[in-house]
């Protein structure tokens, strides 16, 4: 299984570009087994969403 650090790298990368099938599978498995990284993923996704919302309201 990939490490937490590697998992967070992939969580971040997935916010910028689609992951490869292999990376996606590794990350999915890690998130099922690691509540901390799963939480981290949700939080980083939410931060991206609210930043985009902010950027849009400024347009």
């Amino acid at each position: 299984m990939i490490s937490c650090r590697r998992a967070t790298e992939q969580i971040s990368m997935a916010l910028d570009s689609p992951l490869t099938w292999q990376a996606r599978t590794q990350l999915r498995l890690h998130r099922i087994l690691c509540p901390k990284c799963n939480r981290c993923a949700k939080q980083l996704q939410m931060l991206q969403r609210i930043c985009h919302q902010r950027a849009q309201t400024e347009d």
Binding site: T8, E9, S12, M13, L15, D16, Q43, L44, L47
Partner: peptide, 17 residues
């Protein structure tokens, strides 16, 4: 860029928490 974004996001996450 990926490394910097990863770092920025984790640090911001911690700071906002």
């Amino acid at each position: 860029v990926w490394t910097m974004l990863h770092r920025a996001r984790l640090k911001l996450r911690g700071c906002l928490e």
